[in-house]
Write a protein that binds this DNA or RNA. Structure first.
Length: 416
RNA sequence: GGGCGAGUUGCAGAGCGGUCAAAUGCACCUGACUGUAAAUCAGGCGACUUCGGUCUUCGGUGGUUCAAAUCCAUCCUCGCCCA
């Protein structure tokens, strides 16, 4: 894997980002010759990105760290259309205001990973609404549409899948690949962008852009995709008990983010260290070899490094400290989710089920009851034996009540 | 515009007048075993509950019936075929 001359491709391949590339040798030569500009498009369907997008962000990060210019493209325009790839159903359409709000929020997630500015290798944020919103239909059809044949579009996986499964595919969505292809051409024109990266599910869309570039402006553009990252057991990344693993701290606390990585499967540790941290490869090779319970050390490092990248060193250390106190010493960490109960209410007593629900450890009283009857609920590390227990201020230990659902989910109750 | 078919609890997908809060699979949660892992096994998985029940759900709305996810009408959405 060291046959590449460019640091970019050496790094990307060694760390496991390569899935497919339109022309590895040519891209290698170009990257070795000088800085190139590469971009990745991001959907604006939610107000925060989640771990699923992290591989993409890391690719941009490496692009920058190996001396090139990354462009993060916000899909302000394409989100109005909806990418049919990998979906059976049409995406819910968002209005302009929602999309604008999402973009504003998403942008902040890039800040810790990339250096922005106007320098040669400084990262840029671009919104494709800037050129897509103003398109004139007939003109666009004649200039761009004529380069696409329906024959080829029907052969696209995303299209075929819908048709084969007899799921609807609207003309609106059908246009998505054309717009994404056009993005590439436009970015090349505006920012001299010659490389598009993305997840393997974007391959079809990316290739369309590469070909469109050749037809419209006779330039060679490159496409590069990374594998779809799944856990060793085949599950898609990014789900926990609480839902998606968001990158925004408001959506998912640094502590929970840390825990997500801490709970990585054994078989994934090495791969994830390469993909999601900046650690040197020889160091990763050493950690990867750990076996049995020792691999937990590698997981702690993975969790600490990934959390540091996103939330900063201080927040990561705090999360690690809380995890250590909570799990290794059976104590109470200050970073756990906390709810406040008015003193009078606590003095009067609250049923445990209600309390578990309020601490968001259960969705309903019924679920709390089930949790208790299953033996999974704990109050100050003591198993709650029945759902009639009433919690009063007598349960306070140093002003805190610790509630647990299972071994991993904890919350604190304080008076306030 | 015409003909046919479909819309069920997170997803997939049974049910086709009472025994249906609704089979089964996946996902998810908890327990046991462990290493905050995986695998395996066990339990759970609409809400409320004085644990006897009560209430809300099967695209929407109105009917028929003692009784409807199941029958009828109508509307909406989607698919297939024809125009």
């Amino acid at each position: 894997m060291t046959q590449f001359r460019s640091e970019l491709l050496q790094t990307l391949t060694a760390r496991g980002y390569l899935h497919q590339c339109t022309d590895l040798a040519a891209l290698d030569a170009k990257a070795a010759a000088g800085p190139i500009t590469g971009y990745i498009g991001f959907d604006a369907t939610a107000d925060s990105l989640h771990v699923g997008s992290l591989v993409q962000i890391m690719m941009l990060r490496w692009l920058q760290r190996t001396g090139h210019k990354p462009v993060a493209l916000m899909g302000g325009g394409t989100t109005k259309v909806g990418d049919p790839s990998g979906r059976d159903e049409t995406r819910r359409l968002l209005d302009d205001a929602a999309i604008a709000a999402n973009i504003a929020s998403i942008q902040r997630s890039f800040m810790p990973f990339l250096t922005f500015g106007d320098g040669v290798t400084d990262a840029r944020l671009v919104n494709n609404a800037d050129w897509l919103d103003g398109l004139r239909y007939i003109e666009f059809l004649r200039d761009v549409g004529r380069h696409f044949t329906i024959n080829r579009m029907l052969a696209m996986d995303s299209v075929k899948m819908r048709l084969e499964r007899e799921q609807p595919l609207t003309f609106l969505e059908f246009n998505y690949m054309i717009l994404q292809g056009y993005d590439f051409v436009e970015l090349h024109k505006r920012h001299n962008c010659t490389l598009q990266l993305g997840g393997s599910d974007q391959w079809g869309n990316i290739v369309q852009g590469v070909e469109l570039g050749r037809r419209m402006s006779e330039t060679e553009l490159f496409g590069f995709t990374c594998p779809l990252i799944t856990t060793a057991s085949g599950a898609k990344m990014g789900k926990t008990a609480e839902g998606a693993v968001w990158l925004k701290a408001e959506r998912l606390s640094p502590y929970n983010y840390y825990q997500y990585w801490r709970n990585t499967e054994d078989a994934d540790v090495g791969r994830f260290l390469k993909l999601f941290t900046d650690m040197p490869l020889d160091e990763i090779a050493r950690l990867e070899k750990l076996e049995g319970s020792e691999i937990n050390e590698a997981k702690k490092i993975l969790a600490l490094e990934t959390t540091t990248l996103l939330h900063g060193r201080d927040a990561a250390n705090e999360a690690a400290e809380t995890a250590k106190r909570t799990f290794e010493q059976g104590g109470v960490g200050g970073d756990l989710p906390t709810i406040l109960i008015p003193p009078a209410e606590l003095a009067a007593g609250i049923n445990v089920c209600a309390l578990l629900t309020r601490a968001k450890l259960a969705d309903s009283n019924g679920e709390a009851r089930r949790l208790i009857s299953g033996g999974g609920a704990k109050l100050n590390d003591q198993k709650i034996e029945n759902d009639k227990v009433v919690v009063t201020d007598q349960a306070l230990v140093d002003g805190i009540i610790k509630l647990s659902a299972g071994k991993k989910r904890h919350a604190l109750v304080k008076v306030g």
